[in-house]
């Protein structure tokens, strides 16, 4: 079977649509991030998000965010029923633009930290956290 140029193009488009699919499913988190950024571009880098690769219990997952020079850092959980987690606003006496907390994750998913820098630009980092479903209930 020979594949024409036109067919190849159609296949590629189909593949592109397929790769787009997961992003559509994450519309809620995109909306939440846009609400924080006002729709501005978000660069990669400049933010450090520390989260466990595997969380023993999704009820209490320790995370840490850090973005030197940030005014605020918002954290989102892409797979939670509501994606917002917390927003840290740093005041003049914050010695570093970093904070640690413990969060709930409804299942394996991406955690995303978006920092608003002093110049009004935005940067982000993300991490996938696997949430295990234990064998033994409570």
């Amino acid at each position: 079977m020979e594949i024409s140029r036109r067919e190849t193009l159609a296949l590629c488009l189909g593949a592109a649509v397929l790769t787009m699919m997961p992003f559509r499913a994450n519309a809620a988190v995109e909306d939440a991030i846009s609400a924080f950024t006002g729709g501005a571009d978000v660069a990669e880098g400049g933010v450090t998000l520390t989260a466990p690769e595997i969380a023993e219990n999704g009820n209490t997952v320790p995370i840490e965010v850090s973005a030197p020079g940030a005014v605020s850092i918002a954290v989102f959980a892409a797979g939670n029923p509501t994606p917002g987690v917390a927003t840290f606003n740093f005041g003049p006496l914050a010695a570093s633009q970093s904070a640690a907390t413990r969060i709930r994750l409804a299942g394996t998913q991406d955690v995303i930290a978006v920092a608003k820098m002093a110049d009004g630009s935005f940067a982000k980092a993300s991490a996938t956290v696997k949430v295990t479903i234990g064998g033994c209930g409570g």
Partner: peptide, 17 residues
């Protein structure tokens, strides 16, 4: 620091800064 918390923050909220 001034933190806005959403329901995704764990029971017995903890912060370090």
């Amino acid at each position: 620091i001034d933190v806005t918390l959403e329901p995704a923050i764990s029971t017995n909220p903890y912060f370090q800064f």
